[in-house]
């Protein structure tokens, strides 16, 4: 991991637009492949970083459709195997929960 970060930050080629850049990758937040590629060139090298930068995987489906794809794109741009790209943290709740449920929660009110 360390090795590829060094390689990535050291040899930075100019960003080249690609034909499929306008294609949506994150369906929920409508983030395109080009935006994700640009994020890597802006210095985002993990899925968490790209997520905080662009909101990929932060929409209603919580990254269920796009996370593999986002990881592949980051790996491709950095020319490293996909397994070396750290994946996003998992967080509770893992399904969308209406705020009213928390607001009315017995366990929360007791405190």
């Amino acid at each position: 991991m360390k090795e590829c970060v060094i390689r990535r930050t050291a040899a930075k080629e100019p960003f080249m637009a690609k034909l499929e850049d306008s294609m949506i990758v994150c369906r929920c937040e409508e983030i395109t492949k080009g935006e994700i590629r640009q994020a890597v060139y802006d210095g985002m090298m993990t899925m968490n970083e790209v997520k905080r930068y662009l909101r990929t995987g932060m929409g209603l489906c919580q990254g269920q459709s796009c996370s593999r794809k986002v990881r592949d794109i980051i790996a491709e741009e950095m020319s490293v195997p996909r397994e070396t790209i750290e994946i996003s943290s998992a967080r509770n709740p893992i399904r969308p929960v209406p705020m009213s449920i928390y607001a009315n929660d017995k366990a929360c009110k007791r405190r």
Binding site: V25, K33, Q64, I101, K106
Partner: peptide
């Protein structure tokens, strides 16, 4: 989350059998 509220349980043992999600490919 059950309907409109949260419930809290404790299991002496827990079995996670949540299955899989479908992969996608993106294209225009």
């Amino acid at each position: 989350m059950q309907g409109d509220h949260m419930e809290y349980y404790v299991g002496n043992s827990i079995i996670i059998a949540t299955g899989a999600t479908e992969n996608v490919i993106s294209f225009s």
